[in-house]
Structures are given as structure tokens and as C-alpha cells.
């Protein structure tokens, strides 16, 4: 493998990794508050289509990104309404959200299929920094969303551990009744976390259609939302570890398009399976290794909280 193709692979790993990281961070925030949202794929699709459509209309990629995040958040609040407010089963509601999101995105984006993008998020110009060998192309030639993802990771980690909102949010995922008794509002915390998760999934979707593959087709999310859900488990609900996982899984996604150029002669259909097969493999290894250790998942994850229950 040449140096150039190695650099190319790593650069792509960071680009894809940022996509997964944004969605995984959103899911992490939601799960930290105790709400499992399996609708990531659907929220991502909604973000992808709205981002692309807004860019078509306005030719403003930044506005497109912001609208995609808002749509993602609103869409996630459907899940919030059912699970947090009405106490519905989280798995069912989340799966419905994915199905709804994929279908609705395909419907909304029908006329946008195949059209050239109205605007794209161009890579940030870091000046001389991008000339540094290896580091330059890998870290300093990326789209602004990559840096946004890193920023979000740092902020999330900080807010969760150092602020009272973060403490209460983690509490809501560990023992909702404790948080309720302490005077924080479980409903507000959880709704906020779910909306935040939707916004980040929406951003990940917009990143796809405004930058990574700047066009809209049905099914452009290609199951990456599910990888994001798996990443949260891989990262043991920690923003830092999720980042490492995101790079690893991003690398796998990047590998797929490159294996052929490396001379691997395999059906492209089999090649595109590789990242997903490896995802399953990694998760199996993780869960076997974690079997004898106490779980790091939030204790109240998936549990509805109703106050008046005796």
C-alpha cells in the first residue's frame, strides 16, 4: 500500500468517523438520560433530506445544516412524546421512528433525487497547517462538520461531568425517581436529551448530503444510524471511547471503497458488507469480554418513569 493511499484511507476514516460520531454522541446523550432511541437511522435520513433540500432552495449550506438539526430535534421529540411523556415502550417507538423517517424522507425528497447539490460544506482552509506531512491532509483538510463533531464531543463530556444539568441528566438515566425526588424535572431532562440526540443525528444526516456524498438518494444513510447505536455500546457510554470507536468504524467504512484499488478482487456487494460484518464481530467480542464485568450502561435505560405509581 502506497503512502498516498494510506493517507487517503486515514483521511476518509476521519471523515466517516465524524459522521458516525455525531450520531453516536446524540444517542449517547439520550441514553445517558435513560431514553433508548432506535430512531437514529430515521432522524439521520430526515436531516439528510431536509439539509439537501434547503441547500437546493437557498444555496446556503450553513442554513441547511441548522434546519437539518432543527428537523432532527423535532423528529426526535415524537419519540420523546411517546416514551417520556406517555411512557410508551422505547424500543417500539424508536423502531417506528426509523421506519417513519426513512419513508418520509424518501417521500419528501422525491424530486431532489439525482439533482446536483445547491451548496456544499467546503473544507476549512487551515493555511500552512494542511501542508504538514500526514497530519495536514488527515486532520487539516476536513469539512467544518468534522471539527464541529470534535467540539461536540468535548462539550458533551464536559457538560456531563462538570455541570449540574449534566449530573441531573446522568441521574435521570440511573434512577429517575432519585432525580425527581431531588427536585429536577425528569421529563424536561429526558425531553431535552432526546431533542439534543435528534439534532446531532440530523447534523450527521446533513453532513452526508452536504459533504460526504453531496446528493440525495433514497437510502443514502445506508444503516449508518445503526452503527452509531452500536458505537454507544462499544464506547461504554463515554464520549471519549466513542470517538475511538468512531474512528475505527469510520476506517472500516472507508476501507470498503478502497479495497478494490488495493487490488482485492471481490464482488462489490460482498465488499460493502464488510463494515457491517466487522461491526457485528466487534460488538460480539466486546460483549463477551464485558460479560464478567459490571455493566456500564445507565441503570434506568429503557425504563419509563411514572411518578404516581405505587
Amino acid at each position: 500500500m502506497s503512502e498516498a493511499s494510506m493517507i487517503g484511507l486515514l483521511t476518509a476514516a476521519v471523515s466517516f468517523g465524524a459522521l458516525l460520531y455525531l450520531a453516536a454522541l446524540g444517542e449517547l446523550i439520550s441514553e445517558k438520560a435513560g431514553i433508548l432511541n432506535l430512531g437514529v437511522e430515521g432522524m439521520m435520513a430526515m436531516g439528510a433530506v431536509t439539509g439537501f433540500m434547503v441547500a437546493l432552495e437557498t444555496e446556503n449550506a450553513w442554513l441547511a445544516l441548522i434546519v437539518a438539526m432543527l428537523v432532527g430535534a423535532l423528529f426526535a421529540l415524537i419519540h420523546g412524546l411517546f416514551t417520556v411523556v406517555l411512557g410508551a415502550e422505547q424500543v417500539v417507538s424508536g423502531l417506528s421512528l426509523t421506519i417513519l423517517g426513512l419513508g418520509l424522507a424518501a417521500f419528501v425528497g422525491k424530486n431532489a433525487v439525482g439533482r446536483p447539490p445547491g451548496a456544499v460544506l467546503a473544507p476549512v482552509d487551515w493555511g500552512g497547517l494542511s501542508d504538514i506531512p500526514w497530519v495536514g491532509p488527515i486532520l487539516f483538510s476536513q469539512s467544518p462538520i468534522v471539527y464541529f463533531a470534535i467540539f461536540c464531543g468535548v462539550v458533551t463530556s464536559f457538560v456531563l461531568t462538570r455541570t449540574s444539568t449534566g449530573l441531573a441528566l446522568r441521574g435521570a438515566g440511573e434512577s429517575a425517581s432519585t432525580v425527581d425526588a431531588s427536585g429536577h424535572s425528569v421529563v424536561q431532562l429526558r425531553l431535552g436529551a432526546v431533542a439534543m440526540g435528534g439534532a446531532l443525528a440530523g447534523a450527521a444526516g446533513a453532513y452526508l448530503t452536504l459533504c460526504l456524498t453531496p446528493q440525495w438518494t433514497e437510502g443514502v444513510t445506508a444503516g449508518r444510524g445503526w452503527i452509531a447505536v452500536a458505537l454507544v455500546i462499544f464506547g461504554a457510554w463515554r464520549p471519549g471511547r466513542c470517538a475511538i470507536g468512531a474512528l475505527l468504524f469510520g476506517g472500516l467504512l472507508a476501507l470498503k471503497t478502497r479495497l478494490q484499488t488495493f487490488g482485492v478482487d471481490l464482488s462489490p456487494i460482498l465488499l460493502s458488507m464488510i463494515p457491517y460484518v466487522l461491526t457485528i464481530g466487534v460488538l460480539i467480542v466486546i460483549s463477551i469480554r464485558a460479560r464478567n464485568r459490571p455493566s456500564s450502561s445507565p441503570a434506568a435505560l429503557g425504563q419509563a418513569y411514572r411518578r404516581e405509581e405505587r
Binding site: 446522568r170 440511573e174 434512577s175 456500564s296 445507565p298 441503570a299
Partner: peptide, 10 residues
Amino acid sequence: MLANQLTVIE
């Protein structure tokens, strides 16, 4: 009313 994975002070 305690969250097990938080510290005493938290």
C-alpha cells in the same frame, strides 16, 4: 433514592 453509578458526592 441513589444512582449507583454516581459517586457519593454526586
